[in-house]
């Protein structure tokens, strides 16, 4: 039983990272119908920006988190303006291939600039203790991850539902042309979506680095793909779906490992994707009133 709860805690920790990345996928898809495959690499860039803020500028965890989010927001907007905007009226497959190109460009550009060697986050950025509750060891870091994720999700819900830009995003996602006729600046709204999504990926990068220590230029590929699975799982384009999908995927992975299938962990994640696409293409929450962003 203790072991089961421990595995649940493990799953929720990794799941909340997936959820943070999945949010970016889902928001971008909701608004421009593009699977932004470069998103996992924005996550990687975020991890490195956080790392350099901590090691070179000696900042604490939270300032590093904010800097990384800000830098990734700008980075996301740049990617959108340079690579995707010129293709807005092109076929979807053209945009998708461009996204893959951007992804490879960021990965190998990073390797070109700083080399392929790994870096490790300093151990003492967040001096957190472990908690022992009925034989279950919960590391302070797991709790911090969960707290950061939940806070960011609440802020995101607030932005989408209570602010003017959020309203514009929802409008553009419903009908881009109608929104433009109503006087909404569609370009700015799309940029804002990329900015917010990328900021979340940047936050996920710093949290990942803090939790797992090791960061390297190709670290974004697998979490990026898993987050994509999570987004589809919850129903792509639906914000609460990305959160649920991420958490459930994390827990599924931990439980698969718990029953001795640790080598099947990645395979199971993608089997989940296939099953969802066959039996419930709209995703878990796909039946809800579509409130796409």
């Amino acid at each position: 039983m203790e072991q089961f709860i421990q595995q649940l805690v493990n799953g929720i920790s990794i799941g909340s990272i997936y959820a943070l990345i999945a949010l970016g996928y889902t928001m971008v898809y909701g608004i421009v119908k593009l699977i932004n495959f470069a998103h996992g690499d924005v996550f990687m860039v975020g991890a490195f920006i956080g790392f350099y803020s901590i090691t070179i500028f000696h900042l604490g965890f939270f300032p590093a988190l904010l800097i990384s989010m800000a830098a990734c927001a700008i980075f996301g907007v740049l990617i959108e303006r340079i690579a995707y905007k010129p293709l807005r009226n092109a076929t979807r497959i053209a945009a998708l291939i461009t996204a893959i190109g951007v992804s490879l460009f960021i990965e190998y550009g990073t390797i070109y600039v700083r080399g392929a060697q790994l870096e490790s986050y300093p151990d003492d950025i967040v001096p957190l203790k472990n908690f022992d509750i009925f034989g279950v060891t919960i590391s302070g870091k797991s709790i911090l991850i969960l707290a950061v994720s939940i806070c960011l999700m609440i802020v995101l819900q607030f932005i989408v539902h209570k602010t003017k830009i959020g309203k514009a995003m929802r409008a553009v996602s419903h009908d881009m042309d109608a929104a433009r006729l109503m006087g909404i600046n569609v370009n700015n709204t799309i940029s804002a979506t990329f900015a917010i999504g990328s900021a979340l990926a940047g936050a996920a990068g710093v949290v990942f680095g803090m939790y797992y220590t090791k960061i390297e230029p190709l670290m974004g590929i697998i979490p990026g793909l898993k987050a994509f699975v999570a987004a589809v799982f919850g129903g792509i384009g639906i914000i609460p779906g990305a959160m649920t999908g991420g958490l459930i995927l994390g827990v599924i992975e931990a439980l698969v490992s718990a029953v001795g299938g640790s080598l099947w962990r990645d395979a199971v994640a993608f089997v989940v994707l296939i099953l969802i696409l066959i039996f419930r293409p709209a995703g878990l929450l796909g039946k809800n009133v579509r409130e796409k962003v």
């Binding site: 072991q3 493990n10 799953g11 090791k214 931990a254 698969v256 490992s257 718990a258 640790s262 080598l263």
Partner: peptide, 20 residues
């Protein structure tokens, strides 16, 4: 006996099994 794959970053699940 537990196993992992090179390039993995999350070992919590297997280590929890070992701890058990």
């Amino acid at each position: 006996e537990e196993a992992y794959l090179a390039k993995d970053t999350d070992f919590h699940a297997q280590l929890t099994n070992i701890k058990g």
